[in-house]
């Protein structure tokens, strides 16, 4: 079976103007298989987010190849990339990125509007995923009526509605307290174990990384460590 993510010699060079450049990624080689639960760690500025954005087809590398589920995505048009994001990828952000003044249910429905799911079906699936993350009772609450942990669960429900192959989460617990972090990580673990969804998440916290099966360490745009570990069991 093809790896979900397969990058070879991936480089991302930022032009700083005035001739200066920054190599955010300096030749990264990585394969992430289907069903893996990977935590990416490393100091600030080491290129973790840059890697996540390229893996999530939100950004393009300066050079190198990226095969997503076996398909070379470097030559795709913007529309084709949008379609893959719609059908195969789910994102969870540190700052939740929910639409304000919009209910939990409508927020969870958003990706299906763009993938053309009919309204009744949309409603049903969104409710189902809100139940999976355990907040279907908050369906009519807007973001400002929910705690950070609850908002992040809405965001996770939103990432699930199109049955993605890969969920990318950049510091999903970065804005949460210890208890909420624990609940969110247990949710990810459950999604990974029970539904086999591949999860790639960035974190600075070893307790968070402890939930993953594999930890990849970045430093100065390079992978410096890649270790498998005994996964901490979901409570």
């Amino acid at each position: 079976m093809e790896p979900v993510v397969d990058v070879r010699d991936l480089r991302k060079i930022y032009d700083l103007g005035g001739g200066g450049t920054v190599a955010a990624l300096g030749g990264v080689n990585l394969q992430i298989e289907q069903g893996e639960f990977v935590a990416v760690m490393g100091p600030s500025g080491s290129g973790k987010s840059t890697f996540m954005h390229i893996a999530g087809l939100l950004d393009e590398p300066t050079s190198g190849t990226y095969r997503f589920e076996g398909h070379d995505v470097s030559s795709l048009t913007q529309d084709e990339r949008a379609d893959i994001r719609s059908r195969r990828l789910g994102f969870v952000f540190q700052s939740y990125n929910l639409l304000s003044r919009t209910t939990a249910l409508e927020n969870a429905e958003l990706p299906m509007i763009y993938s053309g799911v009919p309204e009744i079906e949309r409603r049903r699936i969104a409710l189902e995923k809100l139940a999976v993350v355990g907040i279907d009772h908050l369906r009519d609450h807007t973001p400002n009526q929910m705690s950070g942990g609850q908002q992040q669960r809405v965001a996770i429900a939103r990432s699930l509605v199109n049955d993605p192959a890969l969920i990318l989460a950049d510091e999903p617990t970065g804005a949460l307290d210890t208890q909420s972090s624990k609940e969110v990580m247990e949710l990810f673990t459950r999604l990974n174990q029970e539904q086999g969804i591949t999860i790639l998440l960035v974190t600075h916290e070893p307790e968070v990384a402890a939930y993953a099966k594999r930890i990849i360490s970045f430093r100065d745009g390079h992978v410096v460590a890649d270790t498998l570990q005994n996964q901490r069991q979901a409570a």
């Binding site: 999530g56 939100l58 913007q78 529309d79 949008a82 379609d83 994001r85 719609s86 059908r87 994102f91 990125n97 639409l99 958003l110 990706p111 763009y114 993938s115 939103r158 199109n162």
Partner: peptide, 11 residues
């Protein structure tokens, strides 16, 4: 955000 969840530029 809309783009990240799959909205095309044309949409």
């Amino acid at each position: 955000l809309r783009m990240s969840v799959g909205a095309r530029g044309s949409v």
